[in-house]
Simulated assay, not measured.
Amino acid sequence: MLSTKLSATVRPFVRKASGIGALRSKHTVPDLDYDYNELEPVISAKIMRLHHDKHHATYVANLNAAEEKVLAAQAKNDVAAQVALQPAVKFNAGGHVNHTIFWKNLIGEKNGGGQLHSSALKSAIEEQYGSLEKLSAQVNAKTAAIQGSGWGWLTFNPAIGRLDVITTANQDMASSVGHVPLLGIDAWEHAYYLDYNNVKADYFKNIWRVVNWKDVAGRYDDAVAKHNSLKN
């Protein structure tokens, strides 16, 4: 028997229809907080335009289309169709969420990219990994080991109440395995190939120069605060 329940990963992205033709708000591609060329020479304006305006936009368009089909299937009580649509919703929702985090995780060097200032996050990194350099080496090694496409992540792991380094395949979200994403590194070829060709190790090395640590530190503070509130 087919289950009528959507997976935990998919469920937040599908709004239950209240009737045929029920309205829903559509997902949109978020604007960048910086110009396309601000991340140069680490990431070129050409890649940023292609990545943001084409790849991310495609995930959003496909997510909206998949959601419309799910709502139509719900209205018809077509369980088989709802189940069949779950992979499309999961993949495109992941593409949308992961890239939305990615854009916020980046900032040009002239505007503070790569600078990790004193913060709770900096203290946690030094306590757990010894230094930012050692952390970045671990993230890069794990991300480079991905077979195919995926993401490297610095996360807050609520299960242990500490930072963690993980990878996810394709467009799977860190939240799908119970982690809170803090910093994501896109390991899909479209993120680097025009600039680095097949030398993705250089891309992984250089991207740390444009990490927006203020954004990452804010995500860490929020994750810790939520974790502590749930314990009390």
Rank of each mutant, 00 (worst) to 15 (best):
G108K: 02
A81N: 01
E133K: 14
Y193L: 14
H227I: 01
A141H: 10
L63T: 05
K205L: 12
L135P: 03
G21R: 02
G114K: 02
L182G: 04
K205M: 12
V79S: 05
H179G: 07
E109N: 11
A93L: 03
Y59P: 08
F156E: 01
P30F: 03
T9D: 11
S18D: 15
R209K: 12
M173C: 12
K200D: 11
K110W: 06
G184D: 00
Q86V: 08
A145I: 04
G21C: 02
R209Y: 11
G108C: 07
N92K: 01
S3D: 11
P30I: 03
A80K: 12
A159R: 07
V139D: 02
N105Q: 07
R49F: 12
W208G: 08
G113K: 01
S175G: 13
G21T: 06
K90V: 10
F204E: 01
R162I: 06
F156Q: 00
A73H: 04
T100H: 06
R219N: 01
A88K: 12
K16L: 12
A75Q: 15
H27V: 15
A120D: 15
V177M: 11
A88Y: 13
Y192D: 09
Q86T: 08
E126D: 10
D78W: 07
L194A: 13
K16Y: 15
E127W: 10
A225V: 10
Y193W: 11
H99M: 14
G184S: 06
N105F: 00
D215N: 15
D53V: 04
M48C: 11
V89W: 05
A72F: 11
I47D: 05
G95S: 06
K214P: 12
K76W: 08
K76C: 13
G148M: 10
S18F: 15
D202H: 10
D164W: 08
Y59Q: 05
A61G: 13
L116G: 03
V79Y: 10
E40C: 07
S123Y: 14
P41M: 06
Y193R: 14
A169T: 09
I185V: 07
A174G: 00
N98K: 08
E68H: 10
A141M: 12
Y36H: 10
F13R: 01
A81Q: 09
T167S: 07
V29L: 01
N157K: 04
V60D: 04
L135R: 00
V177W: 09
G114F: 07
A141N: 09
A45I: 09
K226Q: 14
L132M: 08
E127T: 13
S229A: 15
Q74C: 04
N98M: 04
L23P: 10
S229G: 14
D195H: 06
L163Q: 05
A120P: 11
F13L: 07
V211A: 05
A45W: 09
S229R: 15
I125N: 00
N157C: 08
G113F: 00
V211S: 05
I160S: 10
G218M: 07
A191F: 00
W153M: 00
Y220C: 02
H52C: 04
L135F: 03
E67C: 09
V139T: 05
S123Q: 15
H96N: 13
F102M: 10
Y34N: 09
G94I: 05
R15I: 12
K110Q: 14
S7D: 09
E133T: 14
Q171E: 10
S176F: 02
D215K: 13
E68Y: 06
S123L: 12
